[in-house]
């Protein structure tokens, strides 16, 4: 099959490199770009350039930021003595969307996965420990994913912070609100029983 033009082929190839985008989807996106107004297509290109040139990691919490500190770290209204530890900036966004948490965050930028060759040194654990040791922190909430590797990462961090007077907590797990006990699985029920609270 003859190539349409090199420029089109290049754009298809670039789209196809994105996660979740196959060859067909890449072609659809390319034809969409070809059909929209030039200003709209260039706005997309400009947004990509802007992100790559201006977005960096916050010096304190490693969230995405356009300045040295992210908006959350600069916000004086946030509770300064609680740090919620998450694996990725997208986890932080999910927690922020609940509107229930008013403290600070720390993004690890991954999780300890020795089988994949990812050790504690490749994450931002040292920076977290330094933040806690610097003082002013009362509680560290472990909000890593509830998987073996997420739990393992939380366990490792809590072992490092064990000598500090900081309270270390873990996100609760158990039955979903609105569900019925009859259909909850064994694991959910045992988690809910273990993590039960005073009523």
């Amino acid at each position: 099959m003859a190539e349409i033009t090199q420029a089109v082929t290049d754009l298809v190839d670039q789209f196809a490199k994105l996660p979740g985008i196959g060859k067909k989807s890449a072609e659809r996106l390319t034809y969409h770009i070809l059909h929209v107004h030039k200003s709209e297509a260039l706005a997309l290109a400009e947004a990509i350039r802007n992100v790559k040139e201006n977005v960096r990691y916050c010096k304190s919490c490693y969230n995405l930021a356009e300045q040295e500190l992210c908006g959350l770290c600069r916000d004086p209204g946030r509770q300064q003595d609680v740090i919620c530890v998450v694996e990725q900036p997208r986890d932080l966004m999910a927690l922020e969307q609940t509107g229930m948490y008013r403290g600070l965050y720390h993004v690890l930028l991954g999780r300890i996965a020795p089988l994949e060759g990812i050790g504690p040194d490749q994450l931002t654990i040292d920076a977290l420990v330094n933040r806690v040791r610097a003082g002013g922190v009362e509680e560290v909430i472990m909000a890593t994913n509830p998987t073996v590797e997420g739990d393992g990462t939380a366990l490792y961090i809590s072992s490092l912070l064990a000598e500090t007077p900081v309270k270390i907590t873990r996100l609760a797990r158990g039955i979903t609100s609105g569900s019925v006990l009859e259909y909850a699985n064994k694991e959910m029920l045992s988690d809910a029983l273990t993590g039960r609270q005073t009523f």
């Binding site: 020795p114 089988l115 073996v148 393992g152 366990l155 490792y156 809590s158 072992s159 699985n185 694991e187």
Partner: peptide, 24 residues
């Protein structure tokens, strides 16, 4: 269908890394 999740007790990093080693 889950029969048993591997979840070590609090503070037991040795058990966790032992489990990873078994998998490797």
């Amino acid at each position: 269908k889950l029969l048993r999740r591997f979840r070590v007790k609090k503070g037991n990093l040795g058990g966790l890394y032992g489990g990873y080693y078994v998998a490797e």
